[in-house]
């Protein structure tokens, strides 16, 4: 057991995360990438912890009422639809949950590296850019004064 979730909750959460940001080809899903972030953040912040637990409980309830079984045992083909039901029922908390998943995923160094140089932290290197070419304003420069005289 980790610091915040039971073994079953953690397993369910990994499964859910992979539906939020799925693995495609070489691109990893959020189940592998964001689980540590979510668990750590949830343990550190009571408000974040509540978002995670409320979402997991809502998913469990929806799985029970819709399929008569826990989320883990629901057919893979039905899991996304089930999450859409939860999103419709609890839009505010689910939205916060998705934000948390994105937070964890898009600040993970391995994801940033995979996305390429434009996703890297902006400092201290900055980004390349072509120098300013003054010829670009020639058309505007010659339209004459446009300010309103007072």
């Amino acid at each position: 057991m980790g610091n915040f979730l039971t073994k079953i909750q953690r397993s369910t959460l990994v499964d859910v995360l992979d539906r939020i940001i799925p693995r495609t080809g070489e691109t990893p899903g959020a189940g592998k990438i964001a689980i540590e972030y979510l668990e750590t953040t949830a343990a550190a912040s009571s408000s974040t912890g509540r978002v995670v637990l409320d979402t997991l409980m809502a998913i469990d309830v929806a799985a029970g009422s819709g399929h008569g079984k826990p989320f883990a045992d629901v057919a893979d083909s039905a899991k996304v639809s089930l999450l859409r039901v939860v999103e419709d029922q609890y839009p505010a908390v689910f939205s916060e949950f998705v934000d948390l998943v994105y937070d964890g995923y898009y600040t993970d160094p391995s994801v940033i590296e995979r996305l390429g140089p434009d996703a890297e932290t902006p400092q201290p290197r900055g980004f390349p850019i072509a120098p300013f070419d003054p010829r670009i304003v020639e058309k505007v420069r010659h339209i004459g004064p446009r300010y309103r005289s007072t």
């Binding site: 939020i20 691109t27 898009y106 600040t107």
Partner: peptide, 23 residues
């Protein structure tokens, strides 16, 4: 800004959808 800003919708306010279309 960075990738998280883009994923959350940036100035558009429209978060990139979760699910199969996300990437």
């Amino acid at each position: 800004s960075g990738p998280l800003w883009a994923a959350k919708g940036g100035t558009s306010g429209e978060r990139i959808p979760w699910g199969a279309d996300h990437h």
